[in-house]
Design a protein around this nucleic acid. Structure first.
Length: 267
DNA sequence: ACCACAACCTGGCCGC
DNA sequence: TGCGGCCAGGTTGTGG
């Protein structure tokens, strides 16, 4: 579910938790714990020093080289609620916070989960650069992205190339760059790579401004939907007119995923 | 080493 | 109303 803009919006909705102490942790379903380098006793009593994000991962710095990392899969939510709130269906973890609030992880499909991590550098070592980081340069992007012969769509979804792009924004980025998603990475011209790099930064930044896309399940930490769904150019718009040329938007399947594009504008 | 594809889950929607 | 089929913001393992 959440891609970079959604996770960034969740992060912003939860920065207020910095400084708050964790007074309890209940795991209701153990299979959502992906990695566990820490003990529950260690986490209980620790203080949230900072709420960060890396790619599609939310990171709570608990101090003393301890981190709680959340990945939302397709349907994960992390909601800040009053302790008295009834436990919703598919709630798999409850974090008690000082002051009477709960942070609750719910995830019907259970593709996401929590990791309790010591070595955060190592944990994220596989990830590509942050697209919104000023150091995200076109040269390094070209080297990572143009390795191999696969289609551009598949390369954009590869978190080792750039961190945080998923199915919605891959399609939006390719539309913005006027590139056909089935093009092979090794055949792109220098000019096209520059265009793609620019489109990544522009589309992701704009989606963050609009607080992400709520297509069906996504909510931020305070249960608020995003606003970017109304600004999508092609994703989910099969048959509707292309905003640039008016020809109907096509849906095809690429890299095993629904892929929306304009066959006239994107080549 | 690379790449395509199935598998992991549950729920919602559509057509019969 | 009920059931089958298809679809879904992601990642990982398998086999070619």
């Amino acid at each position: 579910m959440p891609e970079l803009p959604e996770v960034e919006t969740i992060r912003r909705s939860l920065v207020r938790l910095a400084g708050r102490r964790i007074t309890g942790l209940t795991i209701l379903r153990t299979d959502i714990v992906k990695k566990n380098d820490l003990s529950i006793e260690h986490i209980t009593g620790s203080r949230i020093a900072e709420v960060r994000r890396r790619g599609k991962y939310l990171v709570m710095d608990l101090g003393a080289e301890q981190y709680l990392v959340v990945h939302f899969g397709m349907t994960g939510r992390l909601l800040l609620v009053a302790r008295e709130e009834p436990i919703a269906l598919h709630t798999h973890a409850v974090i008690d916070l000082e002051g009477g609030c709960n942070l609750r992880y719910q995830d019907p499909r259970r593709f996401g989960g929590l990791s309790f991590v010591r070595d955060i550098e190592k944990f994220f070592s596989f990830l590509g650069p942050e697209p919104l980081d000023p150091s995200f340069g076109v040269r390094e992007f070209a080297i990572r992205m143009q390795r191999g012969t696969r289609q551009i769509k598949a390369a954009l979804l590869d978190q080792r190339v750039v961190a945080g792009i998923g199915n919605i924004y891959a399609d939006e980025i390719l539309f913005a760059a006027a590139l056909h998603p089935a093009r092979r990475v090794c055949e792109l011209t220098e000019d096209e790579v520059v265009r793609l790099h620019g489109a990544i930064k522009q589309v992701i930044a704009r989606a963050v401004e609009y607080r992400g896309t709520t297509f069906r399940d996504y909510r931020d930490g305070l249960n608020r939907p995003g606003q970017f769904q109304s600004r999508l150019s092609v994703y989910g718009r099969a048959g509707e007119p292309c905003p640039r040329c008016g020809e109907p938007v096509q849906r095809i399947v690429l890299a095993g995923r629904s892929t929306y594009h304009c066959a006239t504008c994107q080549s």
